[in-house]
Nucleic acid binder design. Structure first.
Lengths: 340, 340
DNA sequence: CTGAAAGCGCTAACAG
DNA sequence: CTGTTAGCGCTTTCAG
């Protein structure tokens, strides 16, 4: 068994209360320097580890944060997690990480179990545009911040990519290359990125004076390659009216679109240019290398964690607004001049 | 604030002890069915969540497991984590996940903080061939299992790919294609996969009657593309004596090797065939698509988790031996007949 | 079947 | 500066 505070106190010939003060940085100054020294030595000797159950029970602090992600297997999320861990880990917090698979029921259930573990705060990369968990958190006034997704009702602070700017930059870039028939394969609309990009697409098309009927949108039923392939089938079937450029909702959808193109015998980028979003790993190595926007994943994690830490520790209560981080356009080989 | 067991008991008109029994599946049978019913209803109404600090303090069980991985950003690990979560999550455990970056000091430090959080068990994907953390765990007799890596001293059960079979299969396959000059770019030797594959390479070369001096080994200084590129520089510099096939220590190293080949103007697979290990995502989409071995990542996680759970719950104390899972060879475009 | 009481290990308020 | 005390919320004997 491991040793307890009482063991340390006994060995040091002091009262447990005193030992506690000696060992705790915030109350060390209340104890004589020699005593502190002795207690610490003995603690080290017995390699005493404070029982975090007991401490938590007393202080109502766990130094644990709950981290909800849709799926760690999606390469978007690990860098975010690392960014979070980098700041919160250094501050003494550990992360309880769960995968929700974009399942609202699972999300709520997992949240409840994390809640009963008394997490000091939460970071959610899982929010739906309307999200009961977000409401539950907000109602209970628990520190929490959203990352990569935001909710319709701005109940919690969020850190996300600047999706509106991305879409505008993408379309401007394509127009400069001579494209006028630009289509959008949108990701599902119940999550903010899909919805925001879709809306930004519509308004940008209008703002730039393109013909809306030449710029169709089709909403994919998922986030992966297969969904992209399925969604673009109809889009590229009529060789006369087909777009010359396709903006996919994310990189995986873009790959699916390119799969469809290659099975249909359409060349990318000669016939149709394709753009993705997020710049997940190895998009520079697929064929053709994908033009996409670099979401600052690590930085998003860092920012979210900083906001959460300040909130937990009472340094600053954040506004429930969204911070939009810029996403540079990475031009590679999947885009080129519009065919003549 | 959330409600406590005492609140529930009061509202139900019973003693807290009784409420506790009524709510706990294992002791429910000690309480009258009607009472159980009433207490449960009231608990649900107040949405009572047991305080896990208090419970843990009393029971010395946290229903938490510590999960140490080198780097979540390496696509090898998320599927393992998901496999683990799948079994342990269903059993009521949550996972505290930390990244060690293959830094022994960081590993020990993080382990100690997880220990003070009273994890019921550990799964390590981080073990070095000699690993102080593994020794510390073993000495304290804490349930823990290794995954993807094993230690020299078989102190803990482990689940890994069958690296010896992989290497043998790889070389046999290459020999069948006519290769006799086969080189190995090994991954660092302080981790079991690098070491085991290296040894298997040596013995297989001998067993198959190839000339050892025609089958050089160079040990890479890291696990990534850059390390693979650097390690293969020398190997392919002499056009007369260069190998016709290279077995890289993992997929990232293999990509590095292919980078080197393409900058040197050597064609893959026409001039040199390349094989990787693990089959990380999108190896089927790079150019040329990589021939590699499919490590059963998810299954490894599942197996490790099952062993751990049985150990924690006392169902079965496992042998400290390694389970080797078969890894099928996935033949793609980076391998072909030896040049004549 | 239910109630009473003790105590897990710690911290924080207060007294000396 | 150090000791005393109480109690966080729960489970688990032991009595009734």
């Amino acid at each position: 068994m491991v040793s307890t505070l009482a063991d340390v106190a006994r060995a040091a010939g002091v009262h447990p209360g005193t030992a506690s003060k000696a060992l705790n940085p915030d109350s060390r100054h209340l104890v004589a320097a020699v005593t502190v020294q002795r207690v610490r030595e003995i603690a080290a000797e017995l390699d005493y580890q404070p029982n975090s159950f007991a401490r938590g029970l007393r202080t109502s602090r766990s130094f644990t944060i709950g981290l909800l992600v849709p799926d760690l297997t999606n390469p978007l999320f690990p860098p975010i997690v690392r960014g979070i861990e980098e700041v919160l880990g250094a501050a003494g917090y550990s992360a309880l990480i769960v995968n929700t698979d974009n399942d609202a029921k699972k999300e709520m259930q997992l949240f409840m179990t994390l809640l009963s573990r008394r997490c000091d705060g939460f970071i959610l990369a899982t929010a739906f545009r309307q999200d009961p968990v977000v409401e539950a958190i907000s109602k209970r006034n628990i520190p929490a911040v959203l990352v990569n997704r935001s909710t319709e009702s701005h109940l919690l602070p969020a850190v996300a990519g600047d999706e509106v700017a991305e879409v505008r930059d993408a379309i401007k870039y394509l127009v400069k290359l001579g494209h006028r028939r630009i289509a959008h394969v949108a990701s599902p609309q119940n999550l903010s990125p899909g919805y925001i990009r879709h809306r930004a697409f519509l308004t940008t098309i209008r703002d730039l004076g393109l013909e809306p009927e030449e710029c169709p949108v089709v909403v994919a039923t998922g986030f992966n390659e297969a969904a992209g392939e399925a969604a673009s089938k109809e889009l590229v079937s009529h060789s006369t009216s087909r777009p010359t450029a396709i903006l996919a909702g994310n990189d995986q959808l873009a790959i699916g679109v390119m799969d469809r193109l290659s099975t249909t015998g359409i060349k990318c980028p000669e016939d149709i240019s394709v753009i993705g979003f997020n710049d997940i790993p190895r998009m520079d190595r697929i064929n053709p290398a994908l033009t996409t926007f670099a979401l600052p994943k690590h930085e998003m994690g860092v920012k979210a964690a900083q906001i959460l830490q300040a909130w937990i520790e009472g340094t600053s209560i954040p506004e429930p607004s969204t911070i939009y981080l810029p996403c540079p356009l990475i031009i590679r080989d999947s885009t080129g001049p519009a065919p003549s």
